[in-house]
């Protein structure tokens, strides 16, 4: 996989990544993967496989035990070493919107600009100019508690877009929204992405969502994660939910579900083994 992407413009390169919370249960073991400049990739994995941990590693909130995480900037394509990487190069959108209840929409969205040292007034001017594009026109002075779930996520997304990096990490941003809002948010996200062409790594549980949005799926199936299975989605854009009904998408979906089910088989086999051990133990006692 690494060889395959060699020579392309990379946005993120992860090599030999190892991380574990406890010695007995490593989450990642010698994990390699790359993201291309400007692609929309989704990370699909059953829960408990450390998706959010991977994001925290890429965002620099955790340090890898071994391996490197390199992030390449669009302008100057100079690699930055994972261990000494200066933060502020990725836009991180957490699962919860994490808006500051004491700041209005503009001030919340301007947080990243402010921290990077841009004067507050200038930061506000930039944000205010971008509000219409993000569907937040006229909401500049509203406080988070006055916003709907969808609008809160728009503010949160805008904040991560403005945090400086070309790489955006979106951690299940729409999981808390109702189905209708979710669909409109997905379409909206695609519009913004097609305009700005940032590299997006998107975590989701939802196979349909991943198929609709992504150029490529990265599927993790078993712990510890040492490889990510790849599924390229070459269907033309723009895509709608209707397209998900056509044969090619259904075939892709089956492929992805099989990749995910692989783990289910393993767990079944494991429990089966445990039961066998149990009976053996029982026999020993009698």
């Amino acid at each position: 996989m690494a060889a395959e992407l060699e020579g392309m413009n990379l946005s993120l390169s992860v090599r030999g990544l190892c991380y574990s919370f406890t010695k007995e249960q490593p989450l990642f073991q010698d994990l390699d993967f790359d993201l291309r400049q400007g692609e929309f990739a989704s990370l699909l994995a059953p829960s408990g496989l450390g998706k959010t941990t991977l994001f925290r590693l890429i965002a620099g909130l955790l340090a890898p035990e071994r391996g490197t995480i390199r992030i390449f900037d669009n302008q100057a394509a100079e690699p930055v070493n994972g261990s000494v990487r200066r933060p502020g190069r990725v836009g991180y959108m957490p699962q919860r919107d994490c808006l500051m209840p004491w700041r209005n929409v503009v001030d919340n969205a301007a947080l990243g600009l402010e921290i990077s040292g841009i004067p507050r007034r200038e930061a506000k001017r930039v944000v205010t100019g971008m509000l219409p594009e993000f569907g937040l026109e006229g909401a500049a002075d509203r406080m988070p508690h006055q916003l709907s779930g969808g609008m809160r996520q728009r503010v949160s997304f805008m904040r991560s877009m403005l945090s400086g990096g070309d790489l955006l990490l979106l951690d299940e941003p729409f999981s808390a929204l109702d189905a209708m809002t979710r669909i409109s948010m997905q379409e909206w996200l695609l519009q913004i992405w097609e305009k700005h062409r940032k590299t997006i790594l998107f975590i989701t549980h939802d196979v349909d969502e991943a198929l609709l949005l992504s150029d490529r799926l990265l599927v993790a199936s078993a712990a510890p994660v040492s490889t990510l299975a790849e599924v390229e989605i070459r269907q033309p854009r723009p895509r709608t939910y209707k397209d998900l009904m056509n044969g090619e998408f259904i075939a892709l979906k089956q492929q992805v579900l099989e990749l995910l089910h692989y783990r289910l088989d393993v767990t079944e086999r494991k429990t089966g083994a445990a039961e066998e051990e149990g009976t053996e133990g029982g026999a020993f006692r009698t």
């Binding site: 965002a59 909130l61 200066r86 994490c98 947080l111 990077s116 945090s163």
Partner: peptide, 29 residues
Amino acid sequence: ADEGIGELMRTMGAGRRDLFLKWKLPSAL
């Protein structure tokens, strides 16, 4: 104070001063 906000600010490169003034202080009010 909401840890999520603090983490987010750290990914943006916030230092101790920013974290205190923009996150901890308003959270403690």
